[in-house]
């Protein structure tokens, strides 16, 4: 069995302003805009396909509010 890295996205939803930069940048379509709003009154970004995340970090690089952090774990 080969060991495979899993990546876990951590998003601070409460401060998200819904600019969608991470959504248009993600090549694996992991993220999507929620229908709900947060305390700031913005539709925030939610994770829809966590298992597809390959840890490329494009969402982290694009987020203007640096709300996304990526952690890794080995199976």
């Amino acid at each position: 069995m080969s060991k495979k890295n899993k990546f876990l996205l951590k998003i601070n939803y409460e401060n998200c302003k819904g600019c969608e930069y991470c959504i248009i940048t993600c090549p694996q379509k992991v993220l999507s805009l929620s229908d709900e709003v947060n305390k700031l009154g913005y539709r925030f970004v939610k994770i829809i396909n966590q298992q597809n995340c390959n840890g490329c970090g494009r969402c982290y690089i694009m987020c203007p509010d640096y709300l996304i952090e990526i952690f890794s774990a080995t199976d």
Partner: peptide, 20 residues
């Protein structure tokens, strides 16, 4: 943590800029 975590030179303050 991967290399994609917040740098130490940034505070945790929520900033006041507009979306985008």
């Amino acid at each position: 943590p991967t290399k994609f975590v917040k740098p130490k030179s940034l505070k945790d303050t929520h900033h006041n800029y507009c979306p985008g």
